[in-house]
Nucleic acid binder design. Structure first.
Lengths: 232, 232
DNA sequence: CGCTTTCTTGAGAGAGATCAAGGGTAGTGG
DNA sequence: CCACTACCCTTGATCTCTCTCAAGAAAGCG
């Protein structure tokens, strides 16, 4: 169901990536792809399938994960407006390495592979933007790997996950970092490489120690430095 | 100590990345950077430092790692001829996120940031090559994260590490995968997220079970499928 | 031939996974 | 309005895998 969304007049216009391109390029961008609406819990792209589209997130949050055969899950990141999905795989002409799933109602622009490659080559600005977008994905993946490998304790892994999360969805209120937490304990576990129960236990402990506060799905990191120090 | 190595006449010319550019671009590439020699164990770039150079590996193998404050190490990958170092960080105008260290005597081409950015924008081919190079780095990082998060057992993590290794340095001999293994057990541990002793114990077990064979620093995976199945 | 580095093997301990059972809350439909 | 269901969170008990500590063997190197 293509929607009538224009990149040129778009109000979202994330501070990064393709949204910041010169007007002329935005017109092209508008032309080569089509907007689509995705319901919550619907799948946008699936790991293992041929990478024939690039998706740009216009609205909503999207869960990006990788799965093992026996059903274990690794939550790689949560994509939001301005983020790009499937870029690396399209560039490498391989299959998607991750699965993307809408956490809430989402708006995305879908661009066929060939169109995108042509677009990317159309101007140095677009080319650079593309490279930078992949570089950002790379750093996120590296951060995941770091967390999983370098944190010795479960507390460290969870703390690092929460801090990363805060860095993305920062509604800075002075010292304390507050943000919406749409993930279940299960999902947080997949992000930190922990079991669901361990996440519950740790959050209980963090709350008792005054490190975090939770009200509904809002979460506040009260003592970021102390959380940071857990990640040894 | 700049060496007299030319990208145009280079005999190495990896099958990927910048080495495959049209002759005209190679001339540019030759002009904007300088070749350098690195002794074994010398550091090429260090995590945390401002990313002001891109390095292209011409000869030798390079250990790419990330460290935590308390000295734990994550070995991200081993770079070889044709690989690029520091690309993502240069693009993002941030600091290096990893440390690169020569495993043996190496030859690298070093390109100052500004020169590289100009070069990247000089032609669509170069731009595309750059994006693809970062995409490759991304997939490697993702693979690390996958391994660390999705393998439940230590055996699975090590098996997956060995298989990845074989995929890179493949001297295919029919079924069996043979390759040079310049890493110590300690380093393999850093790659798989395991302790040195666990690596020793597992390799002993793999040998006993006829899954792998070792002669000096050559390693052969005798039953890749069986190793694969450990990585559940 | 001593020295360093790496590998090997053993014993013990602890962190977190797993299994299990119960409670809270929201949404659904009679 | 209330039962019913589904999903998620919470807490307890147990158990296993891997880390850590330890001590010695093997191998490479000056």
């Amino acid at each position: 169901m293509p929607a009538t969304h224009s990149c040129v007049t778009c109000a979202v216009r994330g501070p990064q990536c393709f949204c910041t391109l010169p007007a002329l390029d935005l017109l092209d961008l508008q032309a080569i792809g089509s907007s689509h609406h995705f319901e919550a819990h619907s799948t946008i792209l699936r790991e293992g399938f041929t990478a024939n589209h690039v998706y740009i997130v216009c609205k909503g949050r999207i869960k990006v994960s990788a799965a093992s055969e026996d059903g274990r899950l690794l939550l790689v990141r949560i994509a939001g407006p301005g983020d790009v999905l499937g870029l690396a795989s399209v560039l490498r002409a391989s299959n998607y390495k991750v699965t993307a799933e809408a956490l809430e109602a989402c708006e995305l622009k879908s661009i066929p592979r060939d169109n995108f490659l042509k677009f990317m080559r159309s101007s140095p600005d677009v080319g650079e933007n593309t490279a930078v977008a992949v570089a950002r994905e790379y750093e996120a993946a590296l951060l995941s790997a770091r967390r999983l490998a370098l944190s010795t304790s479960a507390a460290g892994k969870l703390a690092s996950t929460l801090l990363d999360w805060a860095r993305i969805d920062h509604t800075h209120n002075n010292e304390a970092l507050e943000f919406g937490m749409p993930l279940t304990h299960e999902e947080l576990g997949c992000m930190a490489g922990l079991s669901r129960e361990t996440v519950t236990r740790l959050l209980t402990r963090f709350r008792a120690e005054g490190l975090v506060r939770q009200q509904g799905d809002r979460m506040t990191l009260l003592k970021p430095e102390q959380l940071q120090s857990l990640y040894c």
